[in-house]
Write a protein that binds this DNA or RNA. Sequence first.
RNA 1: GAGCUUGUAGCUCAGUUGGUUAGAGCGCUUCGUUGACAUCGAAGAGGUCAGAGGUUCGAGUCCUCUCAAGCUCACCA
Length: 749
Amino acid sequence: MLDKQYQAKNYESEIYKLWLAHDCFNPDSQINQELRAKSPKIQANKSFSIIMPPPNANDPLHVGHAMFVALEDILIRFARMQGKDTVWIPGTDHAGIETQFVFEKKLKKKGQSRFNFDRETLFQMIWNYVSENSAIAVEQIKKLGASADWSRYKFTLDQDIVKTVLETFIQMNKDGLVYRANRLVNFCPKCGTAFSNLEVDHQEQVTSLYYIKYGPFVLATTRPETKFGDTGLAVHPSDQRYQQYIGQEIEVEGLNGNFKLKVIADEFVDPKFGTGVVKITPYHDFNDFAAWQRHKAELPEPIQIIDFAGRLTQAAGKYAGLKVAAAREQVSKDLEARGLLVKVDTNYQNNLGVCYRCGSPIEPLPLPQFYIKVKGLTQAVLEKLDHKEVKVYGAGHNKILRHWLETLEDWNISRQIVWGIRLPVWYKISENPDALVTFIDKAKQRISGKLGELLKTYSPAEISQGLQNINASVDAQYVISQNNPGDAYLQETDTFDTWFSSSQWPFVTLINNKAGDLERFYPTNTMETAYDILMFWVMRMLMMGVYQTGQVPFKNVYLHGLIRDAKKQKMSKSKGNVTNPMEISEKYGSDALRMALVIRSSAGLDKSVSDGDFKAMRNLCNKLWNASRFILLNTKEHLGEKAKKCPNDQVFQTKMTQLTQEITKNLNAFQIGVAADTLYNEFWHWFCDQSIEESKKDLINSDLLLDGLQVFLKLFHPFMPFVTEAIWQELVKEKLVEEKVLASSTWPT
RNA sequence: GAGCUUGUAGCUCAGUUGGUUAGAGCGCUUCGUUGACAUCGAAGAGGUCAGAGGUUCGAGUCCUCUCAAGCUCACCA
């Protein structure tokens, strides 16, 4: 006999084992083949696939992960029960910068840093660390009830995956889509790597605007410390105040002695800002770099005065070695002492680019990097959007996607970190004597210098083995190849942007899985993920998917919103308002957690949840349980009275059919939150409060009620798989149902 | 500055091509417990659907404007 209350804890892990024992999640299993065989042909001939957004392999899940598991599992279980050839391919992500960042924190605690190790050693250390912890995410996803096919599981650094990713790069290079250029990049000195524009956050700040004397001019700048990198001055071409200076060289008194700057005219200068004069510092400001590109003929070569550690270089004279902030303070003091500082507006507001990862200021720095030409890729996706080959569900995000595709700039894919897929780029040692190389020698010393010089003391093998970093000049010759073209080469030390590999995820997971999976499941049906990675991931998957296969990687994009706390605030560790999905699962059950997240949620909109919501859905599980308990008790006494007609039978049956159709329609239209809400209300207030009560008065036939319960269990199953299966197994025991496992049973009609 | 989204009960949110007395959870009021469930049931209070105009036989739903909130992008050194 069933307990009086449903205790999720006592059932969930057993139920999950039952599903695995029947191989319910594998489309090739016997039970699913049987399911398809008895389903309508129109369904059985369709395939339905979802590629799981791979969570960070070694991180515990947050509530957003629980949201995607809930939504995707609903779609998958629904499709499977409909009889479609259904697969949900799970995976985990190496999460390049995120993971390396965490690992470096651990190193720091031991008094070490990434600079203590050569590249390969560091990679291996992180690999071991991730391997030790990589089961976390997978185990938790299972705990949430995900009906993913674990026999098709992939990790982003699996050998076959890496091979395909590299092949894509090589193909792109052949197609002329890859190039190397020395441009300003968004560099985070703290993280030690460049980022794409997308990974830079902008923060409002109040700062000082310094008015500095430059020969006959006064000009305003927020960054006086960059003045050692000035290679020119600019004014607006039609600015009457400065006409006579255009094209002239002026003499400027500086802190490291006097120097000369040429005055150029360029439209980008706003005459109304400051004094209408701008200093040109091409290597440390994006606008200035662009101006220099336009006026190359008139201006000298730029000077780099900030290095990749965020300190001033030798070119800054006596300020060399100072960090940017300290240099700014010192420079402004010295300017003042010399009478070169005219005034300081200390209440100036502007936006500062900061690292999305660590929050420190992004430093625009010149660095040769590999870029992907995106124009052709984005155009191809826009065409697919025009032809409605992809549909985006999520409050206006389709427009945002379009906007991004229309304005996207070339993609910097080089990252100066170790934890990732290394670029298959090889520099011939003998042809790149000017390449800057850092390596750990046999005596464990960190050695830096030009390759040509280092070769006088060290063997190529020693350099290659201890290699930390190679920074080849922008015009360096290189070979792109999966394998080492020979002993005389050094491999590029940069790794791919994590998104370069994950943008290929739908394709690489299928091509490297069971034979025929690509043809069988591509294009996938739905990509379901949070809207905040629309442009990082979804947009790039579309670009790469169309590039690789000519087809969109998925037909539908369902974007869920962020989960917020009861007060609508974003969850964050510092606020202490984070909902840990595993705690909720322990306390109320995974079904309750899933249902609370999903019910009345809508695509693209945020949702706030609190303890009360989870409790309410725990109560729903119990309601299902107890309604079943009543019917089980009742059925025994009244079985076989099916012939007996009761007054409300017809109404009951009609409503049951209508409800089934409604839920089916909702789910087909991705109206998941509405479907859940409807089910909740109809089950609780109509089926329990009304129909069960009526059956007690013999107004509804008991067998009909049992049929109704079965339908409800099926309709509820995608949402709350554990409790519905637990009840179903009781029905199996009582020989009241034929289908052995609810997870692989047929969807009602 | 540009774009997008949102504004419905005390709180958090549903309400899918416009169609009868606008819904749920939590909270609140009153009542109810000899077995399906107190993780419950019955009854109830509470909304001029942000505001104004328009289209329509009919608008929470469509259009225009205003106000408010949020997000994203771009920014003047």
